[in-house]
Design a protein around this nucleic acid. Structure first.
Lengths: 236, 236
DNA sequence: CTGCTGCTACGGTGACGACCGAAGCATTTG
DNA sequence: CAAATGCTTCGGTCGTCACCGTAGCAGCAG
């Protein structure tokens, strides 16, 4: 196997606790500076810089200079996908390990958060459930499809389905989505093109707001109303 | 993030070259002994034993005792999926790295091999292409669906679609598949329930044979004929 | 029983790498 | 200009872990 060394290299980079911390912080798709990432991982800036250099050199991250700041983000969606799949294995193995203290911050994360480019947590799961219940979506552990009714529904509530139309499958006229297993809820929710569009539109329309500097998502009163009236759901 | 430590632990285990070697060897779903795995990784049996103990303790592998042999295999499909996603990142990053000598064994792997439970390599890609061309399958990077015609086709050539019917989605009546990106061909091929069924049936019907102790797959003359006549494809 | 094989437990060695302090470069601010 | 901020490079220390030699334990053959 030619790529064995590179495989090990990638996995080893993800395998260090400090680097894992930083990668997690980047999972929501934002770009963060070296100092911010150092703080998240609990290490000195010099150390973080070294880690970031390595990951960038290998191509897992990309850097964007802006003044005296350097913003780091995940290089590709497949890196995010890899991280999710590792989280999946980590979550379902060793269930006997203690699942300990849920601080207030964790509570917010459990309620609603972003997962690279889509919603996760109870919000993500509830949205997916609501779409399924109304016949707008079909979802299994392997894949998902948006029905014609679902596409009309999204149009109705103001979500641009242009990019989706461009990627309809030839005969079915349906849009394919990607399911994503939630580590806190252990339930499927919606990723892929459709999940991304819903997430983006929710922020643009003011239904949700990013909470300070975390992945946690706050649902605004307006969002509460929309989710209740249009999707028919109520987040506890 | 509660699961950060476990995340790092899982990734670190996959990140050692010797362990990565062993995991790759197990990717086809077979169960191998500690000695075999040691030989593959190029290390002493004692060392391999230690590695296997660790991975088993964490739950990535399962062990089956049989006389004085102990057979190791990947614990779950999600472990295999994780390995694939890491391979994906490893393959698409650092394209400037030398992609060096392709021995005869690599050539066989490139032509046709198993990828956990389905076909990959040129065979896998060609099969997916043929199914798509005849309108039996629709595939994007996010998901795939089997058309009604596709299901009839599979029935015709002797592939049991019972398990698939059981997992039809409610309204569409179609079977959802999982796409899998090939590290050698860099093209999508077919995984998931349908990919698995095709692979299994190919071995049972004598269309293909496992090559000695590797992941490489040999296409029998009978298989050549079937693939040509039924699928309309010719593997170079 | 003795000998053989497959595997695992233990101890010591050696190497790699994560970490931080100190120093240096680039950019913005006063 | 000088001072401050964000970041990186360099050196040295320390802990961890992969590795193998030796030894010991199970299953099988004669």
């Amino acid at each position: 196997m030619a790529s064995n060394a590179q495989f090990a290299e990638v996995a080893a980079l993800a395998g260090d606790p400090a680097r894992a911390c930083m990668l997690h912080a980047l999972l929501d798709g934002r770009a963060l500076t070296a100092t911010e990432l150092a703080r998240v991982a609990g290490i000195a800036p010099q150390t973080a810089s070294g880690h970031l250099t390595q990951m960038t050199a290998l191509g897992m991250l990309t850097v964007e200079k802006q003044g005296r700041h350097r913003y780091h983000r995940l290089a590709t969606a497949s890196v995010a996908h890899m991280l999710e799949s590792i989280m999946q294995v980590a979550a379902e193995l060793e269930p006997n390990r203690k699942r300990f203290v849920v601080g207030p911050r964790d509570a917010a994360l459990r309620k609603a958060r972003t997962c690279y480019d889509h919603f996760a947590g109870r919000l993500g799961v509830a949205l997916a459930d609501a779409l399924i219940e109304h016949g707008h979506l079909e979802l299994t552990s392997e894949a998902g499809i948006l029905t014609d009714a679902g596409m009309m529904f999204l149009n109705e509530i103001g979500i641009d389905t242009g990019p989706m139309l461009a990627r309809r499958t030839k005969r079915s006229g349906r849009v394919l989505c990607r399911p994503c297993l939630d580590w806190s809820e252990r339930r499927l929710h919606l990723a892929g093109l459709v999940g991304s569009a819903i997430c983006t539109h929710s922020f643009e329309a003011g239904w949700t707001r990013q909470l300070d500097g975390t992945r946690a998502v706050l649902i605004t009163p307006k969002g509460e109303r929309v989710f209740r009236e249009k999707f028919g759901l109520r987040i506890s």
